[in-house]
Every structure is written in structure tokens, then in C-alpha cells.
């Protein structure tokens, strides 16, 4: 697809729903979701990839939507924390966050939830982390969970509960 000018047409799915729109080539997925499509589930905490609040699942992988240009997302599936609770039923990770009170102000929470879902998938795929021996199969210890979720800052300091929530969701 060759694109010229400053606006480009792009189509992708958000929480299962297809959208086709003309975007400014400069727009990030985060800004298109929030400002154009009105899906404010992913949050803007730094806009520079330093806090994790904007985490979404892009074709199933957790990414920072503040650093993805919308024009590069053509044909992709974007899943937000809102979409994880389709039909009003919470995803097990979301339920675990509630059960463990793993949130306070709630601003980092949708990003934490998406990141946790992605991290558990990565673990299920046998992907290693810095917390374990890279030559061995990873084990989902609390240290492993903490390392894998450390890209998501929480200023309210809910970390201990977040680890417990992810432990619970992993066992579910």
C-alpha cells in the first residue's frame, strides 16, 4: 500500500469491531483510539513508552500503543481492556485484579491488565524472562511475574497485590 500526503486510509479492528478511517500519518494508535474512536480504555501516562499505561494487545501481543503509528496498524486486531470484558464478563485477569484490590486510582489499570494477559500468554509459550535462567524452562514465581510486569508503572503502589492477582489468574 503506497501512501502519500499527510493523511492515509487505514483499516483495523478494535475490540472486534472493524474501523476504516483516514488518519494523520503522525497519529499514534493511542491517540486514534482515544481522540478519534472514543475508546479511552488505554491511558496516556507518558506518551513515550516509559510507563505502560497505554498497553494494548496488537494481534495478541502486548505493545505500547503510544509508540505505534496508526498507519502501521492496517489489518491488525487491537484489543483493549474494555474489549477483554466483552459481553460484560470480566476476563480472569480483570476479576483477579478486583479480587486482590490490585488497583487504586485505576489509571494504570487497563494497561496493567492488558500487559498481564500478554505476559501470561508469553509465559505459556515458554518465553523466558530476566528473572530466571534463560537456558531453562521458566517457572511462574512471584519474582518472574514482577519482572514480566515491570514495564507497567503504578504510582499508587499496588505492585504486591498486582503480583498476587496475576498469580491467581495464572492458576485460574
Amino acid at each position: 500500500m503506497g501512501l502519500s500526503g499527510f493523511r492515509a486510509e487505514v483499516g483495523f479492528r478494535v475490540d472486534g469491531e472493524p474501523h476504516t478511517l483516514a488518519v494523520d500519518t503522525r497519529s499514534t494508535v493511542l491517540d486514534v483510539l482515544r481522540d478519534t474512536l472514543g475508546n479511552t480504555s488505554p491511558k496516556k501516562g507518558c506518551d513515550r513508552g516509559q510507563c505502560g499505561a497505554c498497553t494494548v494487545l496488537l494481534d495478541g501481543r502486548r505493545v505500547l500503543s503510544c509508540l505505534v503509528l496508526a498507519v502501521t496498524a492496517g489489518g491488525k486486531d487491537i484489543l483493549t481492556a474494555k474489549g477483554l470484558a466483552a459481553n460484560g464478563r470480566l476476563h480472569p485477569v480483570q476479576q483477579a485484579f478486583l479480587d486482590n484490590d490490585a488497583l487504586q486510582c485505576g489509571y494504570c489499570t487497563p494497561g496493567q491488565v492488558c500487559s498481564a494477559v500478554g505476559a501470561l500468554d508469553e509465559f505459556a509459550d515458554g518465553k523466558p524472562s530476566h528473572a530466571g535462567d534463560v537456558t531453562a524452562e521458566p517457572e511462574l514465581t512471584r519474582a518472574e511475574i514482577a519482572e514480566r510486569i515491570s514495564g507497567n508503572l503504578c504510582r499508587c503502589g499496588a505492585y504486591t497485590a498486582i503480583i498476587s492477582a496475576i498469580e491467581q489468574a495464572a492458576d485460574a
Binding site: R61, V63, L67
Partner: peptide
């Protein structure tokens, strides 16, 4: 390096 999300990107 970085975080899980950044390493995916």
C-alpha cells in the same frame, strides 16, 4: 533491556 511490551516491538 526495556520492558516486555517494548521488546515485543
Amino acid at each position: 533491556g526495556a520492558s516486555g511490551q517494548l521488546r515485543n516491538m
